[in-house]
Amino acid sequence: MNASVKLGIVLLLSLEISFTKSISLNCLLVISSLIYLLGKKINLKNFIYTACIPLLPAFGSWSSIYFYGTGDNHHMAWVMFSRIFAYVWLGATLTLTTHIDEILKALEQNVKLPNTFVYGMLAAFNFIPKIGQEIKTIKIAAQMRGVTLHFWSPQIFFKAILTSLRWSNNLAQAMTSHGFSEGAPRTYYQVMPIPTWNMGVALCIILIVQLYLMYPLWP
């Protein structure tokens, strides 16, 4: 399925379940996502990770509403419990099957996201491994002068911004000198059209969810 369509569905449904209070809908979304991911044959480790990771925050939400909530708090506690699983599993249908590069490139072609944004972000993502290293360097350099930097010290952010300014300048220059021109029309090596059936499936999913909310089988 096209990545833009998938992102659209996931965001819409996540937004919708933020306001609805249907436990069964949340469960159905989790089960559907589970079946979809099983069909995509993602590896077992990721699968178990995604199954376990929502447990702790879901328990936190459930227990805090159970203990501190008022009114219909028992129902709401389970709504929150199931909602957190639904958020994570809906998100996983996208993130476990589609790489971020593919999502951004699809958005460029399908919703005309300006290429400045697409390639700017992609370029920055390549620095992810270097950024962890850079923060260690900043901290150690400060320690050599007898200063310990914490996450509340303005200096560590200042240094991070200095580095970002330098890297972004260099990277933008390098990209321009390699022929990247902002806003210019591009041709695509990998064309990502949205097939009609994708739109059909998206429409069906959204419609079914609305119908289910109107005529729920369970609370």
Binding site: T116, F117, G120, F157
Partner: peptide, 19 residues
């Protein structure tokens, strides 16, 4: 919006996330 701005903001986002 220039390429440099987009890269800058994304880098800052990653940096802050790591901190």
């Amino acid at each position: 919006w220039r390429l440099r701005d987009v890269i800058l903001l994304t880098l800052i986002g990653i940096f802050f996330g790591f901190i």
